[in-house]
Nucleic acid binder design. Structure first.
Length: 569
DNA sequence: GCCGTTTTCGGCCCGACTGTTTTCAGTCG
């Protein structure tokens, strides 16, 4: 059991107990334990073995015992009992906007619905509006939300897709009959969401590999099996598509599998114009000779092109640029010198100041900004002026320990409803990095929200605008916002726009990042990490930047600290 | 459920909005 699997069970138990109507604080205890477990750096199994697991704050007798039970049996009795009492479908109903635990329970008790389908049916028969606290208007909303949920359900977030893909590829690589296995498709191109996970493997014994693959514990169902390809369903409902080819065909097959379809079609056309023929099996020249393909670079080289990295393969002009040798030198993970958006346990994160700094140093960064929440964000234990000043002092002290690393002082300051900031100007002026973000009043109209954010952009001490659209992928779209006006203002006032790397945000989106570059806006790639592990999510933000054709010069945190500070206000 | 050199019981939990309401419960970030 991985930590995330254990945490998942506790999260689900909390959700089930909530619908059941259990004690608020008990539910809270389960959620906090789940959160703690998901943020641990070491496997729970090892911590249990060393006898230190139950010493972790928030892990008491009961959760410790259940964790041990889960480690041994893969589940626990209380969890199974909860599942017997509360139909799992209610969790989906509960996830509809405006439906909380109480309404989910009433819907179940009064109408007997146990799934989204049954609820939709009941709503169509106008039974839902008869319930207390639910009007005809809400009933319509329910139907609308169920429909949009069903449409969105087919999309998988990149973070989940990559995690699953990496695990499966590693499994395949360890099979003796597999010579090579790689992630393909949109997951390899780092698309923000994908319809499935594509994997390509090279092996002679195709059937042996397909059999072994179906035996993997993450595989829940075989959807379709052909001679060299299998489609399965896995945990969390993510479909996976595995293609097995011979070693000789691997590169051409992997290249085609990676796509995108439009990129590949364009390349094939280009090949035809030269009299070549590109297929998933080989590349043949005008004389019918098979050209040597050792890696993907060879394919592009034979076609007279610069190598095109997977992130650019969308037929957005990359082939034309590769023909003329004008592809940009894309920003890379190694270019990033520091993270400018990091939280600590001073507000709502898991790690201490020292731990986060150590994590950043281990990543090879030369600086990091500590940017905890500001006071009005009560739920995140935001820092008021006094605590922020105290933190600044602490950082100054800690900074003296290092001569090769700089901790920058900072804040993620709330942009209040009227566009003003949550700290006094005088205090903001003393900080190295001021990020301004929206965390409240999401329902303002487009004009108000746009002006609100522009007020922050114009502010003399605001260096960066955090996660500008406010979207949470798969959960909520952003608020109403005129992004173009916002970016124009950012260009004018020299305010940097953040690419928030969190896989459920990716905000700036790829599209908005492109627009930012067009308008001459500088960008920073940040993690917004709330624990050590999530410092690694920087790769997702780098991927967004790459897909938007950004070079190191477009990204301020590719610079050394002195140069960086010159580029901030 | 977790926590505790003031407590082994009684705290833990914030503020705003929204919709359905005649005074507020439920939801959300």
């Amino acid at each position: 059991m991985r930590n995330i699997d254990i945490a998942w069970i506790f999260y689900e138990m909390a959700d089930l107990m909530e619908i059941k109507g259990d004690d608020f604080f008990k539910i809270k205890a389960y959620r906090s334990a789940a959160k703690t477990i998901s943020r641990l750096n070491q496997p729970v199994e090892e911590l249990v073995r060393r006898g230190v697991f139950n010493k972790i704050p928030g892990i008491g007798k009961a959760i410790n015992a259940k964790t041990r039970e889960i480690l041994e049996t893969g589940t626990c009795r209380t969890y199974q009992e909860l599942l017997d009492q509360v139909p799992r479908g209610l969790l989906e109903i509960r996830s509809l906007p405006g439906i909380g635990p109480k309404k989910a329970r009433i819907l179940h008790q009064k109408l007997g619905v146990t799934s989204l389908e049954e609820l939709e049916e009941a709503a169509k028969r106008r039974l839902v509006r008869k319930l207390p606290g639910i009007s005809a208007k809400t009933e319509h909303e329910i139907v609308r939300n169920i429909r949009s949920l069903k449409e969105g359900r087919s999309q998988v977030l990149l973070g989940l897709a990559r995690e699953l893909a990496k695990e499966l590829v590693e499994y395949l690589e360890n099979l003796p009959e597999v010579a090579r296995a790689e992630i393909g498709g949109g997951t390899r191109r780092w698309k923000e969401t994908v319809s499935d996970v594509d994997i390509v493997a090279a092996a002679d014994d195709v059937n042996g590999v397909l059999d072994a693959f179906t035996a993997h514990p993450r595989v829940t169902k075989v959807l379709q099996r052909d001679s060299n390809r299998i489609q399965v369903n896995t945990w969390w409902g993510v479909p996976v598509d595995l293609t097995v080819v011979t070693v000789d065909e691997f590169i051409t097959a992997w290249h085609r599998n990676t796509g995108s379809r439009k990129h590949y079609q364009h390349l094939s056309l280009l090949a035809e114009e030269k009299g070549f023929k590109l297929s998933h099996k080989q590349l043949v020249d005008a004389y019918g000779r098979e050209l040597e393909v050792q890696d993907e670079e060879d394919i592009y080289r034979h076609l007279g092109l610069e190598y095109i990295p997977p992130e650019l393969r969308e037929d957005n002009g990359e082939i034309e640029a590769a023909q003329t040798g004008t592809l940009p030198r894309l920003v890379e993970l190694e270019d990033i010198k520091g993270d400018l958006h990091v939280h600590t346990n001073w507000s709502d994160a898991a790690g201490s100041l020292e731990e986060m700094v150590e994590g950043a140093r281990k990543k090879g960064y030369s600086y990091m900004a500590i940017t905890d929440h500001s006071g009005s964000l009560k739920i995140a234990n935001g820092l008021d002026a006094a605590r922020l000043k105290k933190q600044v002092k602490e950082i100054e002290k800690l900074n003296q320990q290092f001569d090769d690393f700089t901790i920058l002082t900072g804040v993620e300051c709330d942009i209040l409803a009227d566009g003003s900031l949550d700290h006094e100007d005088e205090l903001l002026a003393q900080l190295d990095v001021v990020i301004a973000s929206v965390h409240s009043h999401f329902q303002q109209d487009k004009e108000t929200m746009t002006n609100r954010i522009i007020s922050a952009i114009e502010h003399e001490h605001v260096d960066i605008i955090g996660h500008v659209s406010g979207r949470l992928l798969g959960r909520r779209g952003g608020y109403e916002l005129d992004v173009e006006r916002v970016l124009e203002a950012a260009a004018k006032y020299n305010t940097v726009m953040e690419i928030n790397s969190s896989p459920d945000r990716l905000d700036l989106s790829e599209e908005n990042t492109r627009l930012a570059k067009e308008l001459g806006v500088k960008v920073v790639i940040n993690t917004d990490a709330h624990d050590l592990k999530r410092l690694n999510e920087i790769e997702y933000g780098v991927a967004v930047a790459r897909r938007a054709w950004l070079t190191p010069d477009d990204v301020v945190n590719t610079r050394e600290v002195e140069d960086l500070l010159k580029n901030l206000k």
